[in-house]
Amino acid sequence: MDMDPSRRGVLGAGLYSVALTIPGWPDHIGRFERLKADPHTRIGMAEVESVIAMTEKISELDDQFGGRTARPMAAAFMVNNIAPYLKATASGEVRRAMLSAAADHLYPTGYMAVDERLDLLGQSYYTKALELALAAGDHLTYCTTLRGMSVQAVELGHGAPALRYANAAAAASPEAGPRMRAFLAGQQAHALAQTGDRAGALAMLHGAEVAMEQAESKAKAHGSYDPASLSYHVAQVNFELGDREGAIRALQHSEKVRPTMYRRARVRHRAMLAEWQLEAGRLEEAVQSWNLALDDFPQVQSGRADDRIRRMLSATQPHRRNPQVRELLERARPILNLIE
């Protein structure tokens, strides 16, 4: 399917009012259509490459240290470097490449805002990333951003919008390779499961697994979508469909094969695993998983990770007389004082 501005219709049923909540945003980014050239500045592919490299570095910091650490850097680079580049004089090829690089910077910046639990702000970044990707003709970033919006929606329990975004991402992805198909289908499966479509979710998950098998012998991962990410989607689908033990097994496998650089995901998913283990009556295993989450938690600045630790406090309330739980809460007390 061709990507064109009409695809933005999927935003009409958005989760939030898409008010631009970034001070001064229209002055810096929103006028890229009108501010086509600054006669005093000219850019080439070197500037595009610098944006791509900086986005990669900041994204790595986000994975390791969380959105509250990384997003201020991403936002400053956007205002101080990317915005002037978008106004600079450039050839058509360079201009499209810069629009694409800018979109690809805004997408992870939106994810960082979501990680901070600044959900409206995150969606405004995502919406601007879609606009820039459309202007650049960048299918990959356009589809990836729609998928990110689906991830945000499903995490907040909005299954129907999550499915619309995920389906729109898949529909707009032209001739996707196997890893991209797995990347999109895994998210579709999670959203389908949350809307209660068991057969659809399992079929889509099977498609994601087949695509991942095909992809593993080929080029490097698209973004961070790898076997650990697919196992996470298997876990989420199982959880949504009521298979708690299957969810626990899949999430344990995901954590086993997850690359060590993804510290923020490790904290969140280990705490999630603990919640599921406790629901299954496996108190000792839950305490162990929470302790593992606490090992990395002090190095992560993440609103979503904070939420998981708060849930630990409420979930363990009925078990406070258990010695292991008491020890866990004693260990967590300094942390809880910081996030409450």
Rank of each mutant, 00 (worst) to 15 (best):
E279N: 05
E279M: 08
A280T: 03
A280Q: 09
G281L: 03
R282H: 12
L283G: 03
L283I: 14
E284Q: 11
E284S: 02
E284M: 01
A286M: 02
A286Q: 06
V287D: 08
S289Y: 00
S289H: 02
W290V: 12
N291W: 05
N291A: 06
L292E: 12
L292A: 13
L292P: 00
A293S: 12
A293P: 11
A293M: 03
L294T: 09
L294G: 02
L294A: 15
F297I: 09
F297E: 14
F297R: 10
P298H: 07
P298K: 10
Q299Y: 06
Q299R: 15
V300W: 10
V300S: 00
V300L: 06
Q301F: 06
Q301D: 09
G303R: 01
G303F: 07
R304C: 09
R304M: 09
R304K: 14
R304D: 08
A305L: 07
A305G: 09
A305F: 12
A305C: 08
D306P: 00
D306C: 07
D306G: 03
D307K: 08
R308P: 00
R308I: 00
R308C: 05
R308H: 05
R311Q: 10
R311P: 00
M312T: 06
M312S: 06
L313H: 13
L313D: 14
L313F: 08
L313V: 15
L313R: 15
S314A: 14
A315M: 12
T316S: 13
T316Q: 09
T316L: 15
T316K: 03
Q317R: 15
P318H: 10
P318K: 12
P318F: 07
P318M: 10
P318A: 08
P318D: 06
H319K: 01
R320L: 13
R320E: 14
R321I: 01
R321S: 13
R321E: 15
R321T: 09
N322A: 04
N322C: 00
P323H: 01
P323E: 13
Q324H: 14
Q324A: 13
Q324E: 15
Q324K: 15
V325N: 06
V325C: 01
V325A: 13
R326H: 10
R326Q: 12
R326V: 00
R326D: 13
E327H: 11
E327Y: 05
